[in-house]
């Protein structure tokens, strides 16, 4: 059904909330928006209670703008900062218990596949480093081992942001955080390598310095998950509160990390590569025709 359920029945426009009417008229349902035009269309997420200047919040904004199929997408989140914005987007959102995302998504995606074998229903997990790599580690890994067809995006702020700044497995070694009073004693977990070994068919590591690239990676991950299997994006989304990064230096920090341990990295299987090339070629053609 997708788009049909979003559209307002004739005659009802004036009874619907303004916000909703704007979403349908000036939003991204049924079309593809350009992330470079953020701010010029009605976005799927607007108000949210994340900290001012939070880079994770920015990443989430770009994420929604990048969705290839927002009218048929379900987002899953968990305890952590991201869910504060995810729960207020104009896309169905599921919140269960802390760290359960990849198990819930497995059940959900299978149910949708049973019920709608001929329809595209994108399922996307967005969760923190603690959620995916600590408490939910087993479920994250096993969803990949099983080859579940959905996308996992880790918004890695290298800390338990939502509970006030404790060490996570993704915190860099040596960093002093709550519950690591003498500094973290072991290395940052190599999530990207784990994802690759565990069976993801598309894996990317990204420091969000370039919105076009974020959007491209997100779209690729979602497309590949539809056909081939699990996909994973490891995104650096700094926590300016717990790491004391002034808002105006957030981008600078992201660029610095991009030069060090968050170099852009993308890997995919051959069949995914072929498939994506085909999709992107068609998209380009379509765009050209629209210009004409």
């Amino acid at each position: 059904m997708g788009l049909e359920y979003v559209r307002i029945s004739p005659g009802f426009e004036r009874y619907m909330p303004r916000d909703y009417v704007d979403l349908v008229k000036f939003g991204q349902f049924g079309k593809q928006v350009d992330v470079m035009q953020l701010g010029q269309f009605k976005e799927l997420v607007e108000e949210h209670p994340m900290c001012a200047g939070c880079y994770m919040a920015y990443f989430i904004r770009v994420f929604y703008a990048a969705l290839p199929n927002p009218e048929d997408t379900i987002v899953l989140g968990t305890a952590g900062c991201a869910r504060l914005a995810l729960s207020q987007a104009a896309v169905p959102f599921i919140y269960g218990n802390y760290g359960d995302t990849n198990a819930v998504a497995s059940g959900l995606k299978r149910a949708l596949t049973i019920r709608f074998p001929d329809k595209v229903k994108d399922v996307v997990v967005i969760a923190g480093d603690g959620g995916l790599m600590d408490i939910g580690f087993g479920m994250t890994m096993h969803s990949w081992f099983r080859g579940e067809k959905f996308t996992t995006i880790m918004v890695d702020n290298e800390v338990y942001g939502n509970t006030g700044g404790q060490e996570s497995g993704m915190s860099p070694k040596g960093v002093q955080l709550k519950m690591a009073p003498l500094g973290k004693k072991f290395d940052k977990i190599n999530a990207v390598e784990l994802a690759q070994v565990a069976g993801c068919v598309y894996v990317a590591r990204i420091s969000p310095t370039n919105p076009k690239r974020i959007a491209k990676v997100i779209r690729r991950a979602i497309y590949a998950a539809r056909e081939f299997g699990p996909t994973f994006i490891h995104a650096y989304t700094s926590c300016n509160i717990e790491y004391s990064i002034p808002t105006r230096e957030v981008l600078k920090d992201a660029r610095e990390r991009e030069k060090k341990d968050f170099k852009f990295y993308e890997w995919m299987t051959d069949e995914v590569k072929e498939y994506l090339e085909e999709i992107e070629r068609k998209e380009k053609e379509k765009a050209k025709q629209e210009v004409k």
Binding site: L76, I94, D100, G107, L108, K109, A111, R115
Partner: peptide, 8 residues
Amino acid sequence: AGAVRGGA
């Protein structure tokens, strides 16, 4: 929980 929320 996921499967049942998906309608199964």
